[in-house]
């Protein structure tokens, strides 16, 4: 039957760009830290030279998080309510997240200190704890939005996995960019070799492949999903979120990097750097459409 909504109250997209930025930062930090842990925690020797640098880069990124998150609060000075034990609410993912965000950088700092002191045993133990915290910190960002059954797009058990895969590839991309910049300031003998960068690029490439598969699964689910999921899919493909989804996520972080990494160009460091930049832009696009498109339809409800 033909019908028209003549009047309704208007509502906002409550979580906006700042939350997307926060998701990107935490993800890139977690991904970068996983690379750091490969050397000292999982014993792969070729990653040891970058472990300290990657860990410090993760800490540096995480330093921005409190600024972004606290500034986004309606009452920024009440941020300490989150760590007040009397107010703590066990059923809220965000209450857990507050403790993860606080403990994760501290743990990484201790890990960096033990690497600096070359204490293998303690670096491995603290590193392992930090890896678990890194994964949990990013896992929870997916869960924060996943546990809302009313947001059809976000309410999928794949959400944390999609977030984590995005984190992994954006973290490697971020690290590749930093390593190449760092090489310019080092003596030739101390520089990170071309093979290492290409290896990181390959690893990122496989991550991108896995991410592409996850996004494909999610998109197919939306295609065959209920009305809200299908409308969201049409919005991300042809509507308002075409920019973040189609051009940033699909083109920048999936299609172009795969071509750059797995073609002949993949043997060129600058092609890998270009792929890394594209992946970081694309993963940021994914954070934007995931956060906003999930809330978008219900602003009209």
């Amino acid at each position: 039957m033909e019908q028209e909504i003549v009047w309704n109250a208007f509502h906002n997209v409550y979580w906006g760009t700042q939350i997307s930025v926060y998701f990107w930062i935490v993800g890139a930090s977690a991904g970068s830290f996983v690379i750091s842990s490969l050397g000292w925690v999982f014993g792969i020797k070729k990653y040891k030279p970058v472990s300290l640098f990657a860990s410090n880069a993760s800490i540096g990124l995480l330093m921005i998080v409190p600024i972004v998150l606290i500034a986004d609060l309606g009452q920024p000075w009440r941020f300490f309510h989150l760590i007040n034990w009397g107010f703590w609410h066990y059923s809220s993912p965000m209450a857990w997240g507050a403790f993860l965000i606080l403990s994760y950088p501290v743990s990484m700092m201790v890990y960096s200190w033990f690497i600096y002191r070359k204490n293998e045993t303690l670096a491995r133990i603290i590193g392992l704890i930090s890896v678990l915290l890194a994964v949990s910190t990013h896992w929870y960002t997916g869960i924060v939005m996943e546990l809302n059954p009313n947001r059809e797009l976000n309410h999928t058990a794949m959400a944390p996995l999609i977030f984590l895969t995005g984190a992994f590839i954006s973290g490697i991309g971020f690290l590749i960019i930093l390593l190449v910049i760092r090489n310019h300031f080092l003596e030739p003998a101390k520089r990170i070799g071309k093979d290492f960068i290409l290896g990181l690029g390959k690893m990122m490439g496989f991550g991108v492949l896995f991410d592409a598969w996850l996004i494909y699964c999610e998109s197919v689910q939306m295609l065959y999903g209920n009305e809200e999921e299908y409308t969201t899919l049409t919005e991300v493909l042809f509507g308002v979120f075409q920019g973040p989804y189609l051009w940033m996520e699909i083109l920048c972080s999936l299609a172009l990097p795969l071509i750059l990494i797995f073609s002949r160009l993949g043997k060129n460091v600058w092609a890998i750097v270009a792929a890394a930049i594209l992946v970081d832009i694309g993963v940021f696009g994914m954070r934007i459409w995931w956060v906003k498109a999930g809330q978008f339809l219900q602003t009209f409800y």
Partner: peptide, 29 residues
């Protein structure tokens, strides 16, 4: 809820734009 999205009247879209202009800091994209 999706019906609200599909069947908004022209008047409602107009009012929505006015609302947005009055709230420039809201997260609309």
């Amino acid at each position: 809820n999706v019906e609200s999205y599909h069947h908004r009247s022209a008047q409602m879209k107009k009012e929505f734009n006015t609302f947005k202009r009055n709230y420039p800091n809201s997260h609309f994209m």
